[in-house]
Write a protein that binds this DNA or RNA. Structure first.
Length: 201
DNA sequence: GTCCAGTTTT
DNA sequence: AAAACTGGAC
């Protein structure tokens, strides 16, 4: 298995090609967590606008914790799932101490609304942990490249990471923008040489 | 396995 | 008109 080769290629690609998004480059755990919750089952475009409004209104965790659920719901209404998301954000305030001290993805995973994907993605992006969050886009990419997906593949990739942030964001961006569900842009993909799917088509 | 929910893409 | 959208809770 070419985990090392794939990791290198993804990181190299990510260095030049990551899409600029409002939460990219964000060093605040609070802000990254807000972004992840807004992005669940939601496109980047829709999430971007609401994210910027959200951060302007609640720049810090303290600001959010002073807000009411209704107020937060109102802001989230345009992108849907507002009931659920607003409740989760307010619950995170109740677990404020966890967020303030967390240094590993396992601690984050205890927060309401934070599952394995979100916790591992932040672990890779912010904490530099050797983990990779696997969302639908990354899974599709890995199935195409390796012909299958299981936990061992994700672990192997994480172990080969030189820069866990670049690897995580690179995988997500490649999966979303290049390795699209239909008509993937294999001619623009840095993994085309080793990709099983590309070679079979 | 089902539900959440408005927006975007096909 | 569907199907999908950086999932997670129940």
């Amino acid at each position: 298995m070419d985990a090392k080769r794939v990791a290198r290629a993804v990181e190299r690609w990510a260095r030049e090609n990551l899409e600029k998004l409002p939460w990219r480059g964000e060093r605040s755990l609070y802000r990254l967590l807000v972004a992840e919750i807004l992005l669940k089952r939601t496109t980047r475009k829709a999430a971007s606008l609401v994210y910027m409004q959200f951060i302007e209104k609640y720049p810090t965790l303290e600001d959010l914790c002073k807000a009411s659920v209704e107020e937060v719901e109102q802001l989230l209404r345009p992108i849907g799932l507002y009931n659920q998301r607003a409740r989760q954000l307010v619950q995170i305030c109740e677990h404020r101490h966890v967020l303030e001290k967390a240094t590993t993805w396992r601690e984050l995973a205890r927060l309401p609304g934070v599952g394995e994907y979100t916790a591992k993605a932040i672990g890779a992006i912010l904490f530099g942990e050797r983990v990779i969050g696997i969302d639908g886009n990354v899974k599709r990419l890995l199935v195409r490249v390796f012909g299958r997906y299981d936990d061992k593949i994700a672990d192997a990739l994480a172990m080969e990471a030189e820069d866990t942030r670049l690897l995580q964001l690179g995988l997500v961006d490649l999966g979303y923008r290049i390795c699209a569900p239909r008509r993937p842009k294999c001619n623009k993909c840095p993994l085309a040489e080793t990709c099983l799917y590309t070679r079979q088509h």
